[in-house]
Simulated assay, not measured.
Amino acid sequence: MHRFDELLAGDFLCSNPDGTLIDRVQFLEQTARPVVIKGLVAEDVRIRLFGDVALIHARTRYQTASSDERHGRYTDVWVRRGGKWLAVSAHVTR
């Protein structure tokens, strides 16, 4: 969680797979909970730079607690602020 605290902008928002939109504080609380998936792998990662904005698209593969294999995608938006890259947005699907 400490690493997320360093990387997320104060105005960060995340769209979750269930359709909820959560802010930075809620995301940090969500990621602090015990993980119920295992073997999370990011594949087909594509990074596109537009000056001080970066878009990251990737496919994910993971196993559920019952060992079923699942797939998803995520898109992150990063912005360079004060010489530091910060995540401002995430969209996750499963």
Rank of each mutant, 00 (worst) to 15 (best):
1 M>I: 06
1 M>P: 00
2 H>S: 13
2 H>K: 13
3 R>G: 00
4 F>A: 13
5 D>Y: 04
5 D>S: 15
6 E>I: 02
7 L>Y: 02
7 L>G: 01
8 L>N: 01
9 A>M: 09
9 A>S: 14
10 G>S: 11
10 G>N: 14
10 G>Y: 03
11 D>E: 15
12 F>A: 03
13 L>S: 08
13 L>Y: 10
13 L>C: 09
15 S>F: 15
17 P>A: 12
17 P>C: 12
18 D>T: 04
18 D>S: 04
19 G>V: 06
19 G>D: 07
19 G>T: 05
20 T>R: 14
21 L>P: 02
22 I>N: 00
22 I>K: 03
22 I>V: 15
23 D>H: 08
23 D>V: 06
26 Q>C: 04
28 L>T: 00
28 L>A: 00
30 Q>C: 07
31 T>C: 07
32 A>L: 07
32 A>D: 12
33 R>V: 07
33 R>A: 13
34 P>N: 09
34 P>D: 11
34 P>F: 08
34 P>W: 08
36 V>W: 08
37 I>N: 00
38 K>V: 08
39 G>T: 03
40 L>W: 11
42 A>S: 15
43 E>T: 10
43 E>R: 15
43 E>Q: 15
45 V>Y: 07
45 V>Q: 14
46 R>L: 14
47 I>N: 06
47 I>L: 15
47 I>S: 09
48 R>D: 14
48 R>W: 05
48 R>S: 14
49 L>H: 06
50 F>P: 00
51 G>C: 10
52 D>P: 02
53 V>T: 15
54 A>Y: 05
55 L>S: 02
55 L>N: 01
56 I>N: 01
59 R>V: 09
59 R>E: 10
59 R>W: 04
59 R>S: 08
60 T>Q: 10
60 T>L: 13
61 R>L: 14
61 R>K: 14
62 Y>R: 10
63 Q>R: 15
64 T>N: 09
65 A>R: 10
65 A>W: 07
66 S>K: 10
66 S>W: 05
66 S>G: 06
69 E>R: 10
70 R>V: 04
71 H>P: 00
71 H>E: 14
71 H>M: 12
72 G>M: 08
73 R>C: 09
74 Y>D: 05
75 T>R: 00
75 T>S: 11
75 T>W: 00
76 D>Y: 04
76 D>C: 06
77 V>T: 13
78 W>L: 10
78 W>S: 02
78 W>M: 03
79 V>C: 11
80 R>S: 05
82 G>M: 07
82 G>C: 05
83 G>A: 06
83 G>Q: 03
84 K>V: 07
84 K>R: 14
84 K>Q: 09
85 W>A: 05
86 L>Y: 03
87 A>V: 00
87 A>F: 04
88 V>H: 00
88 V>A: 01
88 V>M: 02
88 V>P: 02
89 S>Y: 11
89 S>F: 13
89 S>K: 05
90 A>P: 00
91 H>I: 04
91 H>L: 10
91 H>W: 01
91 H>E: 07
93 T>K: 05
94 R>W: 09
